[in-house]
Design a protein around this nucleic acid. Sequence first.
DNA 1: GCTACATTGGACCGAGCGGTACAATTGAGC
DNA 2: GCTCAATTGTACCGCTCGGTCCAATGTAGC
Lengths: 201, 201
Amino acid sequence: MQKPKTRRGEERRDAIVHAAAKLIYERGLRGTSLEDILRAADAGKSQMYHYFSSKDDLAAAVLEHQLAQVLGQQQQFRLETWSGLRAWFDALLEGQKARELRGCPVGSLAVEMSATSEELKARVADAFLRWQSTLEQAFEKMRSRGLIETDATPAELAQTTLAAIQGGYLLSTAEQDLQPMARSLKLAYTHLRSLIPKPSP
Amino acid sequence: MQKPKTRRGEERRDAIVHAAAKLIYERGLRGTSLEDILRAADAGKSQMYHYFSSKDDLAAAVLEHQLAQVLGQQQQFRLETWSGLRAWFDALLEGQKARELRGCPVGSLAVEMSATSEELKARVADAFLRWQSTLEQAFEKMRSRGLIETDATPAELAQTTLAAIQGGYLLSTAEQDLQPMARSLKLAYTHLRSLIPKPSP
DNA sequence: GCTACATTGGACCGAGCGGTACAATTGAGC
DNA sequence: GCTCAATTGTACCGCTCGGTCCAATGTAGC
């Protein structure tokens, strides 16, 4: 409903979002009740409805939180270098293994939210486009530095790379096997490497 | 609970599964109540519980139904030929457009089911592996006919192709734009084409 | 047309859901 | 230490959910 106006309020709001993110990631959005979340956050209903207007509103905040987590981790890598890109892919794979093949914290939430209201659908689209745009910037840097050379636009590369990531997550979660994701990421990496300009003889 | 033992029973069971598949595809599994489904199928609760032991049991039947639909359509194409493969990709894209970017009938259900019980998770894995195996067979045919030549196993090609499809679906649904799926499928196709053996000079 | 079983209608249930109301409590700034 | 807005505890609400029960009805095969 409204933003926290004190330090303490902010911390409580964050605690609710954190607990919600964790539970929703594990059980899905519809599979997680407000009461579960509030119990986990050690908060009461009045607190939640003080900061969020509805469960959907909280869900939107959780989506933002998850995206921020992903982008935060991503920022630790210099994606515009080959070694950075590879390290990032490796980290995604490690994360998926560590989280027991439960899927992408943003992607799986997005699927469920897109099947709900128009409002949430729009929020999901916005979140994904922002994610895509961070990749686009990295590929644009690579292009301008001569690391890659292709007719494909950076936007196109960002889309196909993100699709490979999401497809990898989904298949690896569905089949309960890390391999499909490993292979999908490897293919995406190999494809990008194939765009390295040929040395002119 | 038990299988239909008459013609009429079978039709009613099918009607329930059909209605469930449609609504669940539109609103998600948890977002669809039994009462919604039964109203749409013009059936009563006792009918549903006569043929299914629970909502999860019905969900498993819906997954089977959706997979059968997908494999049925797929069978109309000769995937082991380049033109057939391309036509299939085009058809997937057309379907996603026609269904208003709502995603893969199997994939989106799989995401939600995997976040639920262990039982459903196992069913999802089985379904996906069966889908994957049909692709694997097609690629194996291509390989044995000399259409492709690669170190990658048919199983590996099937996995990466399926991942590209699912990633394309997910991104296109999330961003509410057909383009990411179009590009993801195009990339998958191009990659497979790159495996055409070089004519020995 | 009898019989045995498959099928169906519909009332009912307890639990849990998202959401509301309101009074009590806290604490920052003066 | 007063004041007043920010924050919190708690009881409550109406509704919908998945699931149960059992009597009524249809019907295939004899």
